[in-house]
Simulated scan of single mutants.
Amino acid sequence: MTAVKKYGVLLVNLGTPEAPTSTSVRAFLQAFLSDKRVIDISRLLWLPILYGIILPFRPKKVAANYKKIWLEGGSPLMVHSLNQQKKLQAHLEQSIAECSFKVELGMTYGKPSIPMGIESLKSWGADEIIVLPLYPQFSHTTTSAVADQLDKLSDNSSQHLTLINDYYQEPSYIQALAQSVEGKLPENSKLVMSFHGIPQRYVKQGDPYQQQCETTAQLLAKQLGLENDKWEMAYQSRVGREVWLKPYLDERMVELPRENVKDIVVMCPGFSADCLETLEEISMENRELFLHNGGKSFVYIDALNANQSHIKMMTTLIKSALNL
């Protein structure tokens, strides 16, 4: 009798504080902002800023923002990620019954960690492991940070490991995004697609992130049948004084009402799960900014989270990576 093939899947996201407290936020920010993939300037310049200015003061403010969105089961990112893990496990078992699957969750920063997830899959006896970072658009600040950790875990074990680098133009991803918009975009509204920003310098150094974001936005607009004046894209979450990818979302929130765009629908196609940057920064801060400057209606469309169309897309990616 032929042995059943065992496939391990590691879903990866950025990570989250374990509690909406200054202590937990400080631990998370310390790990996140110490990564050279995220902040690539000289450690001699950066570490005094990180430990002398950011970590002593910023965690309190960030913790207060987390408290606004914290769920009974934990941070939204963790709650949605756990739901994704559970639903993907069930869908893989149902749709590929001839194989055995185990889905684990790993965070680049914090717990459960990537090493914990890989070790669990190896202990289970996975013949092959697929690592799926839930970043549709590749960036060295995100996907390469995952690859760095995987490289540190490499050994001579028998498991074959495959990293899915991106899926920014995957048809099932574009379709899932389009389905999330359907019925939520009034004729008089403009669709604003907001992506997380990165410094422009990173793109000039070869990071493909901006090009991939633009491709996603164009494919989605085409899928929805939107004319050019009915949609736009922008970048959010910039920090510091360095020039980041433009246009800046917060600036567009002020400018759009002046351009007689009073009704907008905002979505974040680069976020696979709702988190601080979508629920607090977008749905609260930028909503207030838009309405305060003359906007009339601001609608935020949830991230794909554990929607069935999102789970099916993940299954499609995994089957393709495994040649199933």
Score class of each variant (00 low, 15 high):
residue 25 V to D: 05
residue 266 V to T: 00
residue 59 P to V: 00
residue 239 V to K: 11
residue 289 L to G: 01
residue 103 V to A: 06
residue 43 R to M: 13
residue 21 T to A: 09
residue 125 G to N: 07
residue 9 V to R: 05
residue 263 D to C: 04
residue 111 K to S: 15
residue 86 K to M: 08
residue 154 S to V: 15
residue 153 L to Q: 09
residue 215 T to H: 11
residue 55 L to A: 03
residue 146 V to T: 13
residue 225 G to V: 00
residue 154 S to F: 14
residue 315 T to P: 05
residue 272 S to A: 13
residue 41 I to C: 14
residue 322 L to Q: 11
residue 108 T to S: 15
residue 130 I to D: 08
residue 87 K to L: 12
residue 169 Q to N: 15
residue 314 M to V: 12
residue 261 V to S: 01
residue 228 N to E: 14
residue 40 D to Q: 10
residue 143 T to W: 01
residue 219 L to M: 10
residue 295 G to S: 06
residue 7 Y to C: 04
residue 87 K to D: 09
residue 125 G to Y: 05
residue 277 E to T: 00
residue 112 P to S: 01
residue 247 P to I: 01
residue 75 S to P: 11
residue 107 M to Q: 02
residue 22 S to V: 05
residue 159 Q to N: 13
residue 11 L to T: 06
residue 278 T to P: 10
residue 15 G to I: 03
residue 234 A to W: 11
residue 262 K to T: 10
residue 60 K to S: 14
residue 297 S to W: 01
residue 183 G to L: 05
residue 28 F to T: 00
residue 13 N to I: 01
residue 157 S to M: 02
residue 165 N to Y: 14
residue 222 K to A: 15
residue 183 G to Q: 08
residue 175 Q to K: 14
residue 78 M to F: 12
residue 200 Q to G: 08
residue 118 I to V: 12
residue 189 S to D: 13
residue 224 L to A: 05
residue 36 K to I: 05
residue 262 K to N: 11
residue 213 C to H: 10
residue 304 L to Q: 06
residue 181 V to K: 06
residue 214 E to D: 13
residue 249 L to N: 11
residue 210 Q to G: 09
residue 314 M to T: 12
residue 69 I to C: 04
residue 62 V to N: 03
residue 238 R to W: 02
residue 178 A to N: 11
residue 156 N to V: 04
residue 84 Q to G: 08
residue 43 R to I: 14
residue 294 G to N: 04
residue 26 R to I: 03
residue 211 Q to R: 15
residue 15 G to Y: 02
residue 18 E to F: 01
residue 288 E to F: 04
residue 272 S to H: 07
residue 119 E to W: 02
residue 51 Y to H: 14
residue 224 L to D: 07
residue 42 S to T: 14
residue 173 Y to G: 08
residue 135 Y to R: 00
residue 15 G to A: 09
residue 167 Y to A: 00
residue 27 A to V: 04
residue 84 Q to L: 07
residue 10 L to G: 10
residue 225 G to H: 00
residue 7 Y to Q: 06
residue 270 G to W: 00
residue 49 I to N: 06
residue 45 L to S: 15
residue 209 Y to F: 06
residue 70 W to F: 07
residue 77 L to Y: 02
residue 208 P to Y: 05
residue 67 K to Y: 02
residue 83 N to C: 15
residue 143 T to N: 09
residue 281 E to R: 06
residue 264 I to G: 03
residue 96 I to R: 15
residue 72 E to W: 05
residue 58 R to C: 10
residue 9 V to D: 09
residue 93 E to K: 04
residue 204 K to T: 14
residue 36 K to L: 06
residue 255 E to S: 13
residue 14 L to V: 06
residue 37 R to N: 12
residue 52 G to N: 11
residue 29 L to E: 05
residue 228 N to F: 01
residue 14 L to Q: 03
residue 214 E to K: 12
residue 32 F to V: 01
residue 262 K to E: 12
residue 304 L to G: 04
residue 168 Y to H: 15
residue 47 L to G: 09
residue 257 P to E: 09
residue 261 V to D: 00
residue 267 M to R: 03
residue 126 A to H: 01
residue 268 C to I: 07
residue 242 E to K: 14
residue 119 E to L: 08
residue 24 S to R: 06
residue 149 Q to N: 11
residue 208 P to H: 08
residue 310 H to N: 12
residue 158 S to P: 08
residue 194 S to Y: 01
residue 88 L to C: 09
residue 277 E to H: 02
residue 148 D to L: 00
residue 247 P to W: 01
residue 219 L to E: 08
residue 179 Q to D: 15
residue 303 A to K: 14
residue 103 V to K: 03
residue 291 L to Y: 10
residue 222 K to E: 14
residue 147 A to T: 10
